[in-house]
Design a protein around this nucleic acid. Structure first.
Length: 436
RNA sequence: GGAGGGGUGGGUGAGCGGCUAAUACCAGCAGACUGUAAAUCUGCCGCCUGAAAUGGCUACGUAGGUUCGAAUCCUACCCCCUCCA
């Protein structure tokens, strides 16, 4: 049983383990290992890309090991040069602290807080002197650092590399020494930095850490790794509905990766899914719904994930109006004043008169009617960036009211009329007077 | 210290006195088709005004200047990059 668990943890969602044989021996020795994971508090939000590593940490915790989370309050200032971003803004100490707080809160949604130790880099780098810097940097050569692929590329392409960027791997390596890491976890793009940790530990008389590398989660665009700056991410703070919808929008090609990296669905079942997909005997959409339920459930519970699913079926698949929508108050009795301001065009032409039958009064009618300026409404609720945009959308037939496409900026609305823009934006006009 | 290159819309990147709100590509938005998948096709993609043709305003690092007219020319300043030392 134990054996099987270990194999699962070492196989599922893993790209590379350095050095695997040794790590296995170490795990079998029964020693409580110190597992290193670092993060830069340059951005506070955690998304599913981070969750891949966090889940792995959790699995090791369940085997009895200790997580040590390093808050990179110094490296955050440099910005990890890996990937596209070049220069990053320096953050103030307060920003870093606030980001870190938010991060931790989210981190412990997955990782067991009881078995986690949090260390800040400033505990050691805060005391660093120039002498220390020189001592650290003298251990490595430029050639060693240029071995890193992205440095190498930039260098040979004649593009700039800041000295602080070269420092980044060294600082990260030094963290491993200070916390006496047994294993460092990271995405495959962290390989170089983690290996530097091994070297430095060895130079400083420690047993070199093992390195546990995981695949990078591809974002919702199906192209690049999930990241906030590319806006292809699913945040763990997303509402259940959003999260569900975003999962549904990933390309089919990512389906199995997501299952493997982000859920506990057993390998045997995943095999079945794969067979079904390649034999085309199963609709990927069905599997994706399962995936979405699994993921939403992890962060919001099964009730919320079921609700998110029925909401999705109702709103997206059946194209009905969602349960909860934004409302805007409109006074039908005095359409040209009060809260309406920009909602009614100055030459107010249509009122209730003419819509009343013989002997009817306003109160006898279930709904009142008035003419309203649609772009004004959309703008007032920030559903649109400008009037111009609203008009464009109307021209393109993207705006409908009570199920009918609108072609003009002015439209007749009733109390409780519902305006829809595109696929996922709604507003409801409510009677301000009735609401009082 | 010296020589050279460059700063254009969310990104890449053309334009180098009027035809330029500014080519193209990417991203984004919307429509068709759909499974909120992919692929494809179509339209949009600075702001305000107008039903619309139109009109006005703001924008090509910053500040001035030349000109009937400037992203395009001149001056100063700021910033970035490359090479030599």
């Amino acid at each position: 049983m134990m054996e099987k668990d270990l194999q699962y943890v070492l196989r599922r969602g893993v790209t590379e383990i350095i050095v695997e044989q040794e790590l296995v021996r170490l795990l079998e020795s029964g020693k409580r290992l110190r597992l290193k994971m670092g993060f830069d508090p340059s951005r506070p939000d955690i998304h599913l890309g981070h969750v891949v590593g966090m889940r792995k940490l959790r699995q090791f915790q369940e085997l009895g090991h200790q997580v040590v989370l390093i808050v990179g309050d110094w490296t955050a200032q440099i910005g990890d040069p890996s990937g596209t971003s070049q220069t990053r803004q320096m953050l103030s100490a307060e920003e870093v602290r606030a980001n870190a707080e938010t991060y931790l809160q989210q981190f412990f949604k997955v990782v067991d807080r009881e078995k986690t130790e949090v260390l800040w880099q400033s505990e050691w780098f805060g005391k660093f002197t120039l002498a220390d810097v020189i001592r650290l940097t003298s251990k490595f050569t430029v050639a060693q650092l240029l071995a890193r692929e992205d440095f190498n590329q930039r260098y040979s392409a004649g593009r700039p590399i800041a000295i602080t960027e070269l420092l980044y791997p060294l600082l990260q390596a030094y963290d491993s020494v200070m916390m006496e890491a047994d294993v460092e976890f990271g995405g495959i793009d962290q390989k170089f930095n983690c290996l530097m940790g091994r070297e430095l530990q060895q130079m400083m008389g420690q047993t070199p850490q093992h390195v546990f590398l995981m695949p990078l989660l591809v974002g919702t665009d199906g192209q690049q790794k999930m990241s906030k700056s590319l806006d292809n991410y699913i945040a763990i703070e997303d509402t259940p509905e959003d999260m569900y919808g975003k999962v549904m929008s990933i390309p089919d090609s990512l389906l199995m990766d997501y299952f493997e990296l982000l859920t506990d669905v057993p390998d045997e079942e995943l095999e079945e899914f794969r067979r079904g997909l390649s034999a085309q005997s199963v609709n990927p959409m069905i599997l994706k719904k399962r995936l979405a339920r699994e993921i939403v459930g992890q962060f919001h519970g099964t009730d919320a994930s079921n609700e998110a699913e029925s909401n999705f079926e109702k709103v997206v698949q059946k194209k009905e109006v969602p349960e909860e929508i934004m409302e805007i108050a409109f006074s039908f009795t005095s359409p040209t004043s009060g809260p309406n301001e920009k909602l009614v065009r100055p030459p107010f032409t249509h009122g209730t008169e003419g819509f009343l039958g013989e002997g009817e009064s306003i109160s006898a009618l279930p709904r009142v009617i008035s003419t309203i300026d649609i772009p004004g409404v959309l703008l007032a609720k920030s559903l649109v960036k400008s009037r111009a945009e609203a008009k464009r959308l109307i021209v393109q037939g993207a705006v409908s009211m009570d199920g009918r496409v609108i072609h003009e900026s002015e439209a007749q609305v009733y109390a409780d009329s519902i305006i829809r823009i595109g696929k996922r934006r709604w507003v409801k006009i409510v009677d301000a007077d009735a609401k009082q």
